[in-house]
Design a binder for these strands. Structure first.
Length: 532
RNA sequence: GAGCCCGUAGCUCAGUCGGUAGAGCAUCGGACUUUUAAUCCGUGGGUCGUGGGUUCGAGUCCCACCGGGCUCACCA
């Protein structure tokens, strides 16, 4: 690091600002690569010969002799000596590898779109050679040059001059392995992004997925809004909230745990198709699938129901995969919706399977879903308590839910829509007209992960109020989502249309579409303890 | 919150039975105008996570703490 500061001073001594300045008209490296077809073999008399076909990246395969090819061409064109030449352009980026062969240096330059080799010769760049001598791994430079192929066939920018843009005073990680300690990768995400393979495409994919969802919804006339993140009642979900305090008002506030109740108020207000994609905060454990702050989208469609939401969910996912494929982030091919997942794959080919809760319960738990006594027996056999701390019997649907989560959810490879949940578990949901014990709700499961959750929304203010007041036996205060919100009930009394509502965990969706096994791989800066 | 595992050079990792702290990459010096994790010759680099204990002697054994990972618990 001392050496780097000495080079910093050496660059300044050349009269060059080691922290650079604005530089215009550079070509992104991926775009520069796209010009490879314009690289030709040109003779002094002006004749041009197209080059043989080469791999997209790196040197030609073993055994291919480009020099011999050029010698043949020279002989075939009257013993002229040809030259490989192509378009002139400028690239900017970070020096990630540096191979010096004396007065000729090869540099691998990286920008957001990819890597390109630079070839810098002392004789060719003249005065700029003094800069080249001070370049360290990690420095940011720009290079003006001609796109060529080297003797080994690798697409390369042959430098005419070099501009210094910024010094890296910290050494990069080891070049074979990069940073491997997961904590360091998350803490120093800038290093992870800059040097570790696969990290940049993963986060660029995340951006594409988010953009695709916004685009899909815009095409369907959905309006994006921003609700408050500071709530006086942490409603809309069952989770422990973070608490904070407003000084001037001297009131305690909660960071939101869901988006739901404010979006529904907007339905009352007449925004018939409304959504918010944003951060929610839950003061709970951390795991490969849980970060205390995460991104979700909730959307509501007036005059729809949960079945409308199933079609929409499928469309949002499929269209996102289409966008990823167009950008080259998923393989495509014969089965473009079969995506890799670890050593396995997930088949997103539509339509996704749709099964009722009770069907799956009967199939996987082996118990009649309409027989509370049999369910209680099964729950007991699985070790779930039948009474709560006070000795009161726990609600049959709570037991059913525990058996379901234990026996069914793990078995769901998916994508599969689980539909028609026990109504008592879903206090914000409309019940089926012909069976009030069943709620019009689905959850989308993929690989045992809950990815989406949707309802036909409850819009009866009196029933809503009653449900807010009733505590299910066997559920603690924190577990329950029955938190009275007087203003929300008042809003419903003004009239909310029949509505389909949907929530999707964006981080989990990104995990599934980018083959990332932990949520921390798709969140740029996951929560960590402070350093030291 | 519980169990198991990890913490050694800037980075990636060895370190045997408790006996002088090691390698590769990176750095620094030298050779090299078509390299491909370039190569070759030479060089410097350490509070072994922190604190205590056992011992003639601790990177190594014991205890506590700090940080992390995995599994579980919690978790619409």
């Amino acid at each position: 690091m001392v050496a780097r500061r000495e080079k910093l001073a050496a660059i300044a001594a050349l009269g060059i600002d080691p922290w650079g300045q604005r530089i215009d008209d550079h070509t992104p490296i991926a775009a520069a690569r796209a010009h490879s077809g314009a690289v030709v073999y040109r003779f002094p008399d002006g004749a041009e010969v197209a080059l043989p076909s080469f791999p997209d990246k790196g040197p030609a395969p073993e055994g291919f002799d480009f020099r011999a090819w050029k010698a043949e061409q020279n002989a075939a064109n009257g013993d002229q000596k040809g030259e490989v030449t192509g378009p002139s352009l400028r690239v900017c980026g970070r020096v990630v590898l540096n191979r010096s062969a004396g007065k000729l240096v090869f540099i691998s330059l990286r920008d957001m779109t990819g890597d390109l080799q630079l070839m810098i010769g002392k004789q060719q760049v003249g005065d700029a050679w003094a800069i080249v001598e001070q370049i360290d791994l990690g420095d940011l430079i720009a290079c003006d040059g001609t796109l060529v192929r080297t003797n080994t066939g690798e697409l390369t920018l042959a430098a005419q001059t070099v501009h210094f843009l910024a010094k890296s005073l910290e050494p990069p990680p080891e070049k074979h392995h990069g940073l491997v300690d997961p904590e360091m990768r998350q803490r120093m995400r800038y290093v992870d992004l800059a040097y570790n393979e696969g990290v940049m495409p993963r986060f660029l994919s995340r951006s594409l997925i988010v953009r695709s969802i916004r685009q899909s919804l815009a095409e369907r006339r959905f309006v994006e809004v921003e609700g408050p993140t500071l709530h006086s009642i942490a409603g809309g979900a069952a989770a422990r909230p973070f608490t904070t305090h407003h000084n001037a008002l001297d009131i305690d506030l909660f960071l939101r745990i869901a988006l739901e109740l404010h979006l529904k108020r907007l339905l009352v207000g007449g925004i018939e198709r409304v959504y918010e994609m944003g951060r929610v905060y839950r003061n709970e454990g951390i795991s490969p699938r849980h970060n205390p702050e995460f991104t979700m989208i909730e959307l509501y469609q007036a005059y729809g129901d949960y079945r409308s939401m199933m079609d929409l969910t499928e469309a949002l996912i499929i269209e996102a995969i289409d966008r990823l494929r167009e950008a080259g982030y998923t393989p495509g091919g014969d089965k473009p919706y079969v995506l890799p997942w670890g050593d396995d794959t997930i088949d997103f080919t539509p339509p996704f399977q749709r099964r009722t809760y009770d069907d799956l319960f009967r199939e996987h738990a082996g118990v009649d879903p309409t027989d509370p006594a049999a369910i209680a027996e099964k729950a007991k056999a699985m070790g779930f308590p039948l009474v709560d701390e006070t000795g009161a019997p726990r609600h049959p649907d709570v037991l059913k839910s525990e058996v379901f989560e234990e026996t069914v959810e793990e078995a769901l490879r998916g994508p599969i829509f689980v539909i028609d949940y026990p109504a008592s578990l879903c206090p914000l949901t409309k019940r089926k007209r012909d069976n009030p014990a069943v709620a019009e709700r689905f959850e989308l499961f993929i690989n045992g992960m809950e990815l989406a959750n949707a309802y036909t929304e409850l819009n009866d203010p009196d029933l809503q109020e009653e449900l807010f007041r009733s505590q299910l036996t066997g559920m603690s205060d924190e577990e329950s989502m029955a938190k009275m919100d007087e203003d929300f009930v008042r809003a419903l009394r003004h009239g909310m249309p029949p509505t389909g509502g949907l929530g999707i965990g964006i981080d989990r969706l990104v995990m599934l579409l980018t083959n990332s096994q932990t949520i921390r791989d798709v969140i740029l800066f996951p929560l960590l303890r402070p350093e030291k």
